[in-house]
Design a protein around this nucleic acid. Structure first.
Lengths: 231, 231
DNA sequence: GGAATAGTGTCTCTGAGACATTATCTG
DNA sequence: CAGATAATGTCTCAGAGACACTATTCC
């Protein structure tokens, strides 16, 4: 242990975000095509350096706003893990605090100050893409975190707007897990979790029987959890 | 986003460890009484600054060795979360990457270079202690992580030596969760998780029926999980 | 034999999942 | 009416937990 932080211990600290959203029923992640000299034209997760007076969470929100035009109110943030291999960034020692960000109806992306392009990618197509730095690891961990969290928390509603139907909620699970769920059983399960959803009393109208319009309830945990198929 | 890491982004990065071990059947955490001028004589989690060429995990192992005399082979490390509030350390901006460390039969602690004293504390007694910095938050999160991990991973064996009995394994769960488990049901559940434990064919001898001597198996996940009582 | 500890059997209850059935809308 | 989608009912099966019972040692 060293008593005081000295120059030997100073390093750059960054935040990197795995921003997930549903677009026409499929799970997408926000990626930036780098314009900076280092790894130019590689695709990467949005992110940037933490400033001195700024908390890690504030840095994440600032970068979301600068790089993707995403405001504070429209997303849920959760810290994922911190990546600090000495050689993970060719520019020097950079410690990256990674976040998972879930949002509803997020806007199309526009290239920010340091991006050539920015767009939403369907997660199944990412395998064909080479991501910069250790971002493949971070993305994989972020996806797994999101999938796991749907099992035992109510954050699926973060992917939906203020109101939604049971089918739409089920659609979130199906898109994130990449797996079909039986509609009747899902319906019953969600209802029996106290405070997961509340009914507004309103109903949709379209083809088929009208669906109850729901809003997220106060519950945060699902007990017992909704489990993915194990295959 | 900023293109290059500059002086505005440099900050000290530290690791802090929630080191947990069982001592005569109770869960204990390793704490250091600070000798350094800042917050002198407060109790704190062991930890220290990350050096330039060093990975975060290596820094954690080095500090475990320097501050608690704990070697690499005897523990399991898992990254917990990163704490970076601008005012969390009065010495300046310090980003702390926290780890949970689980070990078997860890040695009595001896004060290292920067500690007045070091000792194992039973976790139930920590409430009466004032910990330095945001270490109360970190400790709380570390305990919850350890408790949760016992549910769906086989990590409980990290608290035991190479061999153990079913009672000792159950004792780990009971100590970490602070809750009694029914011996018969626990026995059956552990056996039915493929690869959780292997029998050595040896048996203990003492008072009562001899118990099978077990070793940890190759499995890492428990599916379906062993759940804590919900109260 | 008695105390102590290990391990098994059995019963009940909860909840997941498969699948059939009913309900209510549009065209 | 047919087609579509929402919601409920019913049955089976797996697994958790309570608790009784058997097994094997030491004294």
């Amino acid at each position: 242990m060293v008593r005081k932080p000295g120059p030997k211990h100073q390093m750059a600290v960054a935040v990197d975000m795995v921003v997930l959203s549903l677009r026409d029923g499929r799970l997408h992640v926000a990626l930036i095509e780098r314009a900076a000299p280092t790894l130019r034209s590689w695709w990467a997760l949005p992110g940037g350096f933490v400033l001195q007076g700024e908390s890690l969470e504030d840095a994440a929100y600032r970068e979301l706003s600068e790089e993707a035009g995403i405001g504070r109110g429209s997303v849920v943030l959760e810290q994922l893990a911190t990546y600090g291999a000495p050689d993970r960034d060719p520019r020097g020692r950079v410690i990256a605090v990674a976040w998972v960000v879930l949002g509803a109806n997020l806007p199309d992306l526009t290239a920010g100050s340091d991006a050539a392009r920015a767009r939403w990618w369907p997660v199944e197509e990412i395998d064909h893409l080479e991501l910069a730095f250790d971002h493949p690891d971070i993305l994989r961990a972020g996806l797994e975190r999101a999938r796991a969290k749907l099992e035992y928390t109510t954050i699926a509603t973060a992917f939906l707007g203020g109101t939604f139907t049971m089918s739409q909620l089920r659609g979130v699970y199906e898109a994130v897990w990449g797996q079909r769920l039986e509609a009747g059983n899902f319906h019953r399960k969600v209802l029996q979790v106290d405070g997961f959803i509340r009914s507004t009393g309103e109903y949709t109208h379209g083809r088929g029987r009208p669906a109850a319009i729901l809003v997220a309830g106060p519950a945060t945990v699902i007990q017992p959890p909704i489990l993915r198929a194990t295959n």
